[in-house]
Design a protein around this nucleic acid. Structure first.
Lengths: 344, 344
DNA sequence: TTAGGGTACGTAAGCGCTTTCGCAAGCGCT
DNA sequence: AGCGCTTGCGAAAGCGCTTACGTACCCTAA
C-alpha cells in the first residue's frame, strides 16, 4: 500500500512569507495573535504556492478533523445516493472529505461502522437510514455517539430521531397523511399498505400519518392490511404478490417508499393489472426516476439532497445542549399512478 | 470543528503485551524481526482491547494511507452509485476508507479533485466516468497522476482508458455491436442514436460497435442521425424531441446509456408513441431500475458493482510498469422496449 | 575459547502540524 | 522615567505512529 509523497509543507509557506511556522499556522487557521497584514501575506503566499495542509498532520496535532463519515444503508439505493449527493456538495464547499460506509440495513453492522469511524478519528458522523429495532443495540450506539460528542465530535442523523442527536427529519407523519387523504379523496376504501419491518421511525411515522387520515374518515389503520417486507424493489414485489393473493379486492396500494412502489408497479404489470384504472399506487420520497416511470408515480417528495446538506450544516454548527431537530418540507406529487377508485 | 478524542494507543497495547512500541508496531504490521510468539501475543492483546490504529498518525509516520479517493461524476447517478457500492464493499473488507468526490462531468473540476485528493494524501485514487475531451487538461491530469504514482500512490480508472493508468474497461465496442445487431435483426433500418458529447471513450467505443454492426449489413454509422446531448435523463429527453422533430421516420432509438433511454421513454410516452410497436428503444449499462421500467428496457448489462470491486482490487495489486487493463463482460438483456420494426 | 553473523528486540528520531509558553516591543498610566 | 498591560510573534513540545539504528543475545565456525 502506497505512501503519500513529499509535498509542500507549512514551513515552506512560512519561510516564503518570512514568518515562523507557528505564525503561519495561526494565520491560516484564522486564529488571532497575528496582525492583519502578516495574516494576509501568509494567506497570499499559501494561495500562490497552492498549499494544502496535510490533514493527517493537522488532525494528529489536535486540530480539527476534516473528514465526515456518512453511514448509509447502501449507496446504490437512490434515496441514500441523493442524500449523499447533498452531503458531498456541502463538504466540497467547506473543504471537508466525505467517507461513506454501508450499514447494510443491519443495526449491529451499523454500530460497528460507528465504532470504526470513531476509531478512525473522523470529526463528524452522519447517520442516514431508519433507526434501530433492537433497544440494546440502540442504547449501545447512543452511548458510543454520546462519548464521541463529549470528546468534541459532531453527530447528526438523517431521517430518524432515535439516537439522541441532532437530526434532520422529514415530516413523515404529514406525508403519510397526505397520501392517505389523496387516496381517500379519490374514493379508495380498500387500501393495502406495503411496509417495511416495524420499529423503524420512518415506518411508524408514515403509518401514523395514514392512520390519522383514515380516522378523519371514520376508519383506522387497523382496518387495513399492512404487509411488512423490506424497503427495496424486491420487497415491493413480494408485498404486492401477497396483497394480490390475500386481498384481491384492493383498489390502492400505498407503498412506504418509492423503491417498494417500483416493485409493486412491476408486479402489477406482470399480472396485467391496469394502473391506475384497477389499482392505484403511491410511493414515498420521490426519487428521481419516479417521474419517469410508466405510469409516473404519485408520491410524497422529500428534498433528499437538501436533507443531506442540512444534516452537515447542522453538524457543523456549535453543539447545543439539547438535540436539535430540523424538519424538512414535503410535497404531495400527484402523477399518473393514482386515479379514482374503480366503481363497485 | 471537532477534535478527535483520546483513545487507545499503540503504546497501551505494547505495554499490556509487555513489549516495546516498536515491536508492537512491527507485530501488527506483519513485519519480520518479531518472533512468532510475541507477534501472536501482541495481536491477541490488540484484538482484546479493540485497538484500531490512528490512521492520521500512521500515514504521517510514513505508513500506508488507508484511504481511497473515488471520483465520480455525480453520486446520485445510478451508474456511479453502483460502482461506488462495489468499491465501498471491497474497501470495507480491507479496512480501507472511501472518500467520494464529484467531478460534475467537468474535466477541469475533475482535475481539481485529483489534485485535492493527492494533496490530502490519499493512498489510492479511483476515477470513474468518461474521459477528457480537452487534451490539455487530459495531459495535465496524466502528469499529476503519474507523479502521484511515482511517489507510491495507486491509481485506477473505471470505464475509460485515457489516463495511462490501470483501468477496468467494459467492452463498450462489443456492447454497442450487440445492440446494433439486435435492432438490425428486428428489421430496424431507421435507427437514431441518442449520444453524449463526442470525445468520450465510452461514447466513441459504443458508437464504433454500432458502426461495426451496421457495416456487416452494408451500412454505416454515418448513415444514421446521431444526436449529441448529455448522459442524463434530461439529455435523453432533449435528444428524443430532436429526433422526433428531425427524423419522424425513426423506428428505433439507440441511447448510449440507460439514463438517456429513460428520458427517451418518458418523451415517447408524452407523445403517446407506442414502445416498442412504433419505436423501439435500447439503453446501455442496465442500471437496476431498467428492469422495472414500463416497458422494461432492453439494454446491455455492465457489471457495475463488479467493476468497482475490480478497480480497487487492481489498485491494491503491486504496480506494474505498463498500465493494465481488466475487461468486464457484458450481456445483451432483451426486454420489452424492443420489438420488430413496424411494417412499411 | 573467541570472533563473526544472524535474530529479536528496544531506543529514538522524525512525519507536518497545532498549541502552550515565553519574550520583546509598544502602549497608557502614574 | 518606571510600571504593568496588551499585542505579535518565535521556540519548542508534543499528537501516535513507522522505521532507521543500536544493542543484547545466541548460534556457529575456526
Amino acid at each position: 500500500m502506497p505512501k503519500p509523497g513529499p509535498r509542500l509543507r507549512l514551513v515552506d509557506v512560512a519561510e516564503r512569507a518570512g514568518v515562523s511556522l507557528a505564525t503561519a499556522s495561526r494565520a491560516l487557521a484564522g486564529r488571532d495573535g497575528v496582525s492583519a497584514e502578516v495574516a494576509d501575506r501568509v494567506r497570499q503566499v499559501s494561495r500562490e504556492l497552492g498549499y494544502v495542509a496535510n490533514p493527517y498532520a493537522r488532525t494528529l496535532a489536535g486540530g480539527a478533523s476534516p473528514t465526515v463519515g456518512l453511514i448509509v444503508h447502501q449507496i446504490d439505493d437512490p434515496y441514500f445516493s441523493e442524500i449523499a449527493g447533498g452531503v458531498i456538495q456541502v463538504a466540497g464547499e467547506q473543504g471537508l472529505l466525505v467517507q461513506i460506509c454501508h450499514s447494510g440495513r443491519n443495526p449491529e453492522h451499523e454500530l460497528r461502522q460507528v465504532r470504526h469511524l470513531i476509531a478512525q478519528r473522523v470529526g463528524i458522523i452522519l447517520i442516514a437510514g431508519s433507526g434501530y429495532t433492537d433497544p440494546a443495540v440502540e442504547a449501545e450506539a447512543r452511548r458510543e455517539l454520546s462519548a464521541f460528542q463529549d470528546l468534541g465530535g459532531r453527530v447528526a442523523a438523517i431521517g430518524r430521531h432515535h439516537l439522541g442527536v441532532d437530526a434532520v427529519l422529514p415530516d413523515n407523519e404529514a406525508g403519510g397523511r397526505a397520501l392517505g387523504e389523496h387516496l381517500l379523496s379519490l374514493g379508495h376504501r380498500r387500501i393495502a399498505i406495503a411496509s417495511a419491518a416495524g420499529g423503524l421511525t420512518t415506518v411508524e411515522d408514515r403509518l401514523a400519518g395514514v392512520d390519522a387520515a383514515l380516522r378523519r374518515h371514520g376508519r383506522a389503520l387497523t382496518d387495513l392490511p399492512v404487509v411488512r417486507t423490506e424497503f427495496t424493489r424486491d420487497g415491493g414485489r413480494v408485498a404486492a404478490e401477497r396483497i394480490l393473493r390475500d386481498h384481491p379486492e384492493t383498489t390502492a396500494i400505498l407503498a412506504l417508499n418509492d423503491s417498494m412502489a417500483i416493485g409493486v408497479l412491476a408486479t402489477l404489470r406482470a399480472h396485467r393489472i391496469a394502473v391506475p384504472e384497477r389499482i392505484s399506487v403511491v410511493g414515498f420520497n420521490d426519487v428521481s426516476v419516479a417521474a419517469d416511470l410508466a405510469p409516473s408515480l404519485t408520491t410524497v417528495r422529500l428534498p433528499m439532497t437538501e436533507m443531506g446538506r442540512m444534516a452537515l450544516d447542522l453538524a457543523l454548527k456549535p453543539r447545543s445542549k439539547r438535540p436539535r431537530r430540523r424538519s424538512t418540507g414535503h410535497t404531495l406529487v400527484v402523477r399518473d399512478s393514482t386515479g379514482p377508485a374503480p366503481a363497485g
